[in-house]
């Protein structure tokens, strides 16, 4: 039934005390596919991955990874997966090479294989020069690469990447994307969580948007974008005082409410490039000068905004922390 899919989860529920972290997640990742699990902090992304990686037991629901039940056959699942968490989970006192060897040994691979594979991964992740230095001397990007290398030591067919680029600088992030793309090209199945909309758009063929422990949308990036209605036109007028009038004039051109930010107007439209001509014409009829005009496809930011009613909070603190801080302030 479900054995064909790399990952198949049905109705996953997880409670932590009174907190419903997951409230019935359904998820399928076909073999060789890259699925992005997208959502803000606290949406349940990490909890989902931890259940699939056998680290947490679901309160309800079932999940199969590589055809094995994550609760009943965790060891079979562990043989098939690689996991890279939000923090670089490597030993900082061990060198890069020692780290990879240790994890290889713990997979019970032959010493010869571990040795070759370690050298190969260090080379591929551009860590050969730093291979014999303790990992604590590595930069953030290097640690994350070592962390990813560690999860690849046994050539897993399914890879879970929990926010693989959170906290990385843009250059390291691009490097990480390249590595992930190469793995996908080799046929690895990837389930990736991210709060970066751009990242899901870049890497994933299929995107599952979750919020408050529920799947709120699902599809390719294009499908999700179409779901919220066509393109966006973005216009900047030269004279800020005439923005209000400009919006009125543009209303018949658009298909929905315009969002105004100072002299910039953002409005959903349909009808392709003729819309640009129409927009310029109506504004020109009253002599409103346009300094910039673009027609663009909606970004996933637009998708998220229209689906959840709030923007994806990139650095929002976890709920319990915020509550704790509030209490302290009251006392003081």
């Amino acid at each position: 039934m479900t054995n064909d899919a790399a990952v198949h989860a049905e109705g996953l529920v997880k409670h932590f005390g009174d907190v419903r972290a997951l409230d019935g997640i359904d998820l399928t990742v076909e073999r060789g596919q890259v699925v992005g699990l997208l959502g803000p902090n606290g949406a349940g992304k990490t909890t989902t991955v931890r259940i699939l990686a056998t680290l947490l037991q679901p309160t309800a629901g079932v999940a199969y990874v590589a055809g094995h039940d994550v609760v009943k056959e965790p060891d079979a699942v562990r043989h098939a997966i690689g996991l890279t968490g939000q923090y670089a989970a490597v030993d900082e006192y061990l060198t890069g090479r020692e780290n990879l060897r240790m994890f290889g040994d713990l997979y019970h691979l032959s010493p010869r294989y571990v040795k070759e594979r370690t050298a190969e991964l260090l080379e591929w992740f551009d860590l050969s020069e730093a291979a014999d230095r303790p990992a604590k001397t590595y930069s953030g990007g290097m640690r994350r690469r070592l962390d990813l290398a560690a999860s690849l030591i046994a050539k897993p067919s399914i890879l879970f990447l929990d926010e693989p680029t959170t906290g990385l600088d843009p250059r390291s992030r691009l490097g990480m994307w390249g590595v992930i793309q190469a793995l996908v090209d080799e046929g690895t199945t990837v389930l990736l969580t991210t709060q970066y909309l751009e990242e899901a758009d870049q890497l994933a063929q299929d995107i599952v948007v979750i919020d408050h422990g529920r799947v709120i949308a699902h599809g390719t990036a294009d499908v999700l974008k179409d779901q919220i209605g066509g393109d966006r036109i973005e216009i900047a007028v030269t004279d800020v005082t005439r923005v209000g009038r400009a919006v009125e004039l543009l209303r018949p051109v658009g298909t929905g409410e315009a969002i105004v930010d100072e002299a910039r107007i953002l409005m959903p439209v349909s009808g392709g490039s003729t819309v640009l001509v129409d927009a310029v014409r109506v504004l020109d009829s009253e002599g409103i000068e346009v300094s910039d005009i673009v027609l663009r496809r909606p970004t996933l930011d637009d998708v998220f905004l229209s689906l959840t009613g709030h923007v994806a909070e990139e650095e929002a603190p976890a709920v319990p922390k915020a509550r704790g801080r509030g209490r302290k302030e009251k006392k003081a």
Partner: peptide, 17 residues
């Protein structure tokens, strides 16, 4: 705290090790 236990636990290794 550093998450390395998570990595160990996701490996097919002997639990008490």
């Amino acid at each position: 705290h550093k998450g390395i236990i998570d990595r160990f636990r996701a490996l097919p290794m002997s639990p008490p090790a």
